[in-house]
Design a protein around this nucleic acid. Structure first.
Lengths: 99, 99
DNA sequence: AGGGCACTTGCGTCTTTGCGCAAATAGTGA
DNA sequence: TCACTATTTGCGCAAAGACGCAAGTGCCCT
């Protein structure tokens, strides 16, 4: 039980670190900003942020692997949305600390 | 003025990303946890976390470069503390999202 | 000055990350 | 099936990060 608590503590820390890592890139933070207003397609995001589509797809894969975003397919278009709106609060505080 | 706002927006995003990067390592999150209770010396942290002193010093340098911690010298001992307790809230939410 | 403790810095190495480009997959409609 | 669009995946390379070990700096004490 003690071990149990310690293990999940370590696990939570590792996963928290992984989420922080996913948020540690300006482009990905930009994606989070965009998704605050609602879901967006890969090509929309790629255009807004000004990078190539494959690059955007990779960034979105990183965010999804961290559980930050989720995707929905509509025809040939894939829409991404925030899976955890709480990351907006994280982002807000990060900016506050940064300022 | 519009450019001004845009530039500082980009700057804030970049700095927020830098802070997230500093938090993207399990050992550094562990340091943040320890510092929640008050200041600690480098050797204390190194012992608690179980890494070599130079390694801990480097991690602390990363956290300080991001403005997350600050240091105070007392004799030959250097004590680190949280410069922005708000990161504790960030860490709390990250764990919440992770869980 | 000299020895010893606390910490920082430099260096070599191995792993990870971001990006561009090409190729593959998925879905739509003629 | 074929062409077309949207997205993902694979690959190679350059840049950044983490760690161990050795060397350097700063401080205290005798």
């Amino acid at each position: 039980m003690l071990m149990q608590a310690t293990l999940s503590n370590d696990l939570l820390r590792d996963r928290a670190a992984a989420i922080a890592r996913a948020l540690s890139d300006a482009k990905r933070l930009c994606v989070v900003e965009r998704l605050a207003d609602g879901e967006r397609s890969v090509s929309d995001l790629s255009r807004d942020i000004g990078c190539q589509v494959p690059n955007m797809s990779q960034h979105l894969a990183v965010l999804r692997a961290a559980g930050i975003v989720a995707s929905r397919r509509d025809g040939s278009t894939v829409f991404y949305r925030l899976a955890h709106p709480q990351v907006l609060e994280v982002y807000r505080i990060l900016r506050q600390v940064a300022g």
